[in-house]
Amino acid sequence: MLTMEDIIRDGHPTLRKVASEVAMPPSEEDKQTLSSLIEYVINSQNNEIASQYGLRPGIGLAAPQINISKRMIAVHLTDDKGILYSYALFNPKIISHSVEKAYLQSGEGCLSVDEAIPGLVPRHARVTVKGINLAGEEVKLRLKGLPAICFQHEIDHLNGVMFYDHIDKHDPLLPIEGATVIER
Rank of each mutant, 00 (worst) to 15 (best):
I49S: 03
M24A: 06
Q52C: 04
P57H: 14
A63H: 01
S69I: 06
A88W: 01
N67V: 07
A23C: 08
Q105M: 06
I38W: 00
G58Y: 03
Y103V: 13
P122T: 11
G60Q: 09
D114T: 14
P92G: 12
S27L: 13
A88Y: 01
R126V: 13
Y103H: 12
R71P: 00
I38R: 00
P64N: 11
A125H: 09
D114I: 13
H76V: 03
V75A: 03
E48G: 05
G109R: 05
L34F: 06
K81C: 07
E100N: 06
S96E: 15
S35H: 09
V113E: 08
P92V: 14
S69W: 08
I66D: 03
Q45Y: 07
P64S: 11
G60H: 10
L37A: 01
G82D: 04
I94V: 14
S86M: 10
P92T: 10
A74L: 06
K70E: 01
S36D: 11
M24T: 06
L89D: 02
A102Y: 03
S86G: 07
H76L: 02
H124W: 10
I68S: 04
Y87K: 03
P26N: 13
S27E: 08
V41T: 11
L37P: 00
L37R: 01
V41K: 09
T33Y: 01
L111E: 04
I117S: 11
S35W: 01
K101S: 11
N43T: 05
N46H: 11
Y85H: 15
L120W: 08
L37E: 00
I73Y: 00
